[in-house]
Design a protein around this nucleic acid. Structure first.
Lengths: 110, 110
DNA sequence: GCTATCTATCGTAATATTGCAATATTAAAT
DNA sequence: ATTTAATATTGCAATATTACGATAGATAGC
């Protein structure tokens, strides 16, 4: 055993978990931070910014892309990555809804 | 190799990654969902709700607690768990800020 | 064509996570 | 004090993640 029982959870739960998991590593949070701070967004710049080898950064970019948090387009020789706003909007909505529900419910049993 | 290079990233990046990682498993998202939907919040109820063994659920609860997403208080024989609003507020703020920055910046290079 | 540059993938070692049975701990109830 | 019930912890096997060097692929420039 040791494999996540994905099939026992709802699509929404799996979907939130996938995106959250992608952000569950500081290097990937750092990539998002960096993409927010720059105008251009070339893969090589990200490699220079992070204290990790090029292969490792490429892997992290792949995971962010698979989770739908970023998208990439080929710019000649290089690849331009940027944040997918839909994924961010989804997370924002998810946490805003939790906050609203918490406010309605008196969350004071602990 | 294989250990995350936590020390190379900022406290904020590590902090967001920790909370996101805790939500990076559908069982833990399901636990948060469940805690939102009920008034009382007893550990045993969570075990009954999830398709996982008691030991596994206990482990997931521990991780959510370590990440600061839930807090627990002993209710005699049982343990009452509920969502820590501060952690949710932090995430909400984080994603709201990203959305604001994305709106300012024209995020259209890809 | 050749060469340089940029990014992705492969292979592999170290580490971490997932899941559960078995066991331990804790507190209520008798 | 015993028993019962609720959680936590331990130990272990299966799987997944992290990191990086080496290598492959793809494009630009000569």
């Amino acid at each position: 055993m040791g494999a996540t029982k994905t099939e026992h959870f709802t699509d929404k739960q799996n979907s939130i978990a996938t995106v959250a998991k992608a952000l569950g590593h500081p290097a990937r949070v750092a990539i998002i931070d960096y993409l927010l701070s720059v105008e251009a967004c070339i893969c090589g710049d990200i490699v220079n910014e992070l204290p990790l080898a090029q292969a490792t950064v490429s892997q992290h970019l792949k995971e962010l892309k698979n989770a739908g948090l970023i998208k990439g387009s080929i710019e000649g020789n290089a690849v331009c990555y940027c944040i997918d706003e839909k994924a961010i909007a989804k997370l924002q909505t998810y946490f805003a809804n939790i906050s609203i529900k918490l406010a309605k419910k008196k969350n004071d049993c602990c």
